[in-house]
């Protein structure tokens, strides 16, 4: 199967027009990866160069460097072109170091877990 063959380039859904551009790749588990698209195929398997994960917790964010990534297509939700010269994030968001975003991430996860476990305890007490 050809990709970006002559018949496909007109009104094509292929990722060819995104090659060598800085992209945002949303994954099914909610992760957000940034990087340069270097290759792809018909399954939307993609190769990202200089990839990093953008972790956002509330108004804090951090880009954690990952390197060269080959992403399996079935985990891809969306691939977005980041418009050059436009702010990637709203102005009220603050860049923080990796250690801080990891702490914030953990705090957020713990809060969710607590809510779940409290619910289970209440269920146990619920006699009606």
């Amino acid at each position: 199967m050809s990709w970006a063959g002559a018949e496909d380039t007109f009104l094509s859904t292929s990722l060819a027009s995104y090659l060598d551009k800085k992209l945002l790749v949303l994954l099914r588990d909610g992760r957000k990866l940034l990087g340069l698209l270097r290759s792809f195929d018909q399954f939307a398997n993609v190769v990202l160069e200089g990839a990093c994960e953008r972790v956002i917790v509330g108004d804090l964010y951090c880009d954690i460097p990952l390197g060269l990534y080959v992403i399996r297509g079935e985990n891809v939700v969306l691939i977005g072109e980041l418009e050059l010269g436009k702010e990637e994030l709203p102005p009220h968001m603050t860049l923080v170091p990796e250690a801080e975003i990891k702490r914030a991430q953990k705090a957020e996860r713990d809060a969710t877990d607590l809510k779940g476990s409290m619910r289970k305890r209440m269920e146990f007490l619920d006699f009606d």
Partner: peptide, 16 residues
């Protein structure tokens, strides 16, 4: 979805 702020064009996988 603040991370989508500067996305103007996108590819969406049919399965999602």
């Amino acid at each position: 979805y603040p991370h989508m702020l500067s996305v103007r064009n996108c590819f969406i996988r049919g399965s999602v």
